[in-house]
Simulated assay, not measured.
Amino acid sequence: MKTYSTTASLRATLNAARRAGKTISFVPTMGNLHEGHLRLVRRARQLGDVVVVSIFVNPLQFGANEDLDSYPRTLAADKEKLFAEGVQCLFLPQVDEIYPEGMDLHSKVSVPDLSERHCGASRPGHFTGVTTIVNKLFNIVQPDSAVFGEKDFQQLSVIRKMVRDLCMPIDIVGVATARADDGLALSSRNGYLSDQHRRSAPVLHRVLQECREAIACGYDSYRELEQHAVLTLREAGFEPDYFAICDAGSLREVGPQTEEVVILVAAKLGSTRLIDNVTLNLNPSADWGMLATN
């Protein structure tokens, strides 16, 4: 595995690989890698001849009161894990490589509407930071495919729309959420949880599952389900940001044409903000035994 800190050096290597007829798959990360990230890397290895992983804690997607300075950075351990997974290229740029004139003067990419709901409503500017850095990384790496986790369902949806809207020739591949044995979605932020909060954290996924089961059984009073879920989370010690039952395509309210539902949640447990989701196919002709269980 070779490490690159500049766009020019990485591009030189990847251009040579392309001339040799090799395909390139890409996994953008912010480091502090866990099993969820490694599953993305393994999927990328199936998709491309050369796997590129980036580690960049992107300041543009953090709000003024968010955890940029305290975001966990574990570079030595990350490198060991990526080497063990057979990654060929690690892109490790500094902030001034990505934003040479500073963030305020840097061109930005935004996805309207889809990025303004749910997490976008409570974290203004967050998704513009995400789409700007992902767009820039895509231009640097020019991958054939890029792999993202489904844990952040809204982020994946926003990136897919950006790629469609801007006619990028990149296959965006989602990978099911990796979970601990008790159901908690793996996240770099789980390390912030106290022992007590870690014991409570699996309630988040349990409430999502209960909501999905109610809908699968025919209960369609979605606002009542959302209100009940919020109350249950508060009783378990969470501070819910939102709990929303949505059309999986538009992230808007479920309507007559909805075929797949996504149930999204974001909630604080102590000072740690957790997100999760599950999906459900509403198509009556679907094989119910094959319903998504992420």
Rank of each mutant, 00 (worst) to 15 (best):
residue 157 S to I: 00
residue 109 V to M: 05
residue 157 S to K: 08
residue 111 V to D: 04
residue 100 P to H: 04
residue 148 F to H: 12
residue 141 V to E: 04
residue 83 F to H: 12
residue 128 T to I: 09
residue 134 V to N: 03
residue 95 V to S: 13
residue 83 F to Q: 15
residue 157 S to N: 09
residue 86 G to M: 05
residue 89 C to M: 12
residue 184 L to C: 08
residue 152 D to A: 14
residue 143 P to W: 07
residue 126 H to Q: 11
residue 159 I to W: 03
residue 184 L to G: 04
residue 103 M to N: 00
residue 149 G to A: 10
residue 106 H to N: 08
residue 92 L to H: 03
residue 178 A to W: 06
residue 131 T to F: 06
residue 155 Q to S: 11
residue 178 A to G: 12
residue 162 M to A: 03
residue 140 I to D: 06
residue 177 T to C: 08
residue 99 Y to M: 10
residue 124 P to D: 05
residue 112 P to Q: 01
residue 179 R to S: 13
residue 125 G to I: 00
residue 177 T to Q: 08
residue 97 E to S: 09
residue 136 K to E: 10
residue 184 L to E: 02
residue 134 V to I: 15
residue 117 R to T: 07
residue 158 V to G: 06
residue 83 F to L: 15
residue 101 E to V: 05
residue 182 D to P: 11
residue 113 D to R: 10
residue 129 G to S: 05
residue 127 F to P: 13
residue 109 V to G: 02
residue 106 H to L: 07
residue 183 G to L: 06
residue 118 H to T: 00
residue 165 D to M: 09
residue 127 F to N: 06
residue 118 H to N: 03
residue 132 T to L: 11
residue 176 A to C: 08
residue 86 G to Y: 00
residue 105 L to S: 14
residue 138 F to N: 01
residue 141 V to W: 08
residue 117 R to E: 01
residue 174 G to E: 01
residue 86 G to P: 02
residue 123 R to Q: 05
residue 169 P to K: 10
residue 91 F to G: 02
residue 169 P to D: 11
residue 173 V to C: 07
residue 116 E to F: 01
residue 97 E to L: 04
residue 189 R to E: 09
residue 121 A to R: 10
residue 180 A to N: 15
residue 147 V to A: 02
residue 152 D to R: 15
residue 140 I to M: 05
residue 171 D to P: 02
residue 167 C to A: 15
residue 171 D to K: 11
residue 165 D to K: 02
residue 121 A to I: 02
residue 189 R to S: 14
residue 126 H to D: 09
residue 89 C to F: 07
residue 139 N to M: 12
residue 87 V to L: 05
residue 155 Q to W: 13
residue 88 Q to H: 10
residue 99 Y to I: 11
residue 158 V to R: 08
residue 188 S to P: 12
residue 147 V to L: 03
residue 123 R to Y: 09
residue 139 N to T: 04
residue 176 A to I: 07
residue 131 T to S: 13
residue 165 D to E: 13
residue 158 V to D: 07
residue 95 V to L: 15
residue 173 V to L: 02
residue 176 A to S: 15
residue 170 I to E: 04
residue 129 G to T: 08
residue 100 P to S: 11
residue 149 G to M: 04
residue 93 P to C: 06
residue 148 F to S: 13
residue 121 A to E: 10
residue 135 N to F: 09
residue 83 F to S: 14
residue 162 M to T: 04
residue 119 C to W: 00
residue 146 A to M: 13
residue 88 Q to N: 03
residue 178 A to L: 06
residue 127 F to H: 08
residue 137 L to S: 06
residue 167 C to G: 06
residue 177 T to E: 09
residue 162 M to N: 03
residue 83 F to P: 00
residue 164 R to E: 09
residue 166 L to Q: 11
residue 108 K to I: 12
residue 155 Q to P: 08
residue 153 F to R: 02
residue 182 D to E: 13
residue 101 E to R: 11
residue 183 G to N: 10
residue 179 R to Q: 09
residue 120 G to A: 11
residue 148 F to L: 12
residue 104 D to W: 00
residue 148 F to A: 13
residue 141 V to I: 12
residue 187 S to N: 10
residue 118 H to A: 00
residue 112 P to C: 07
residue 107 S to V: 06
residue 121 A to W: 00
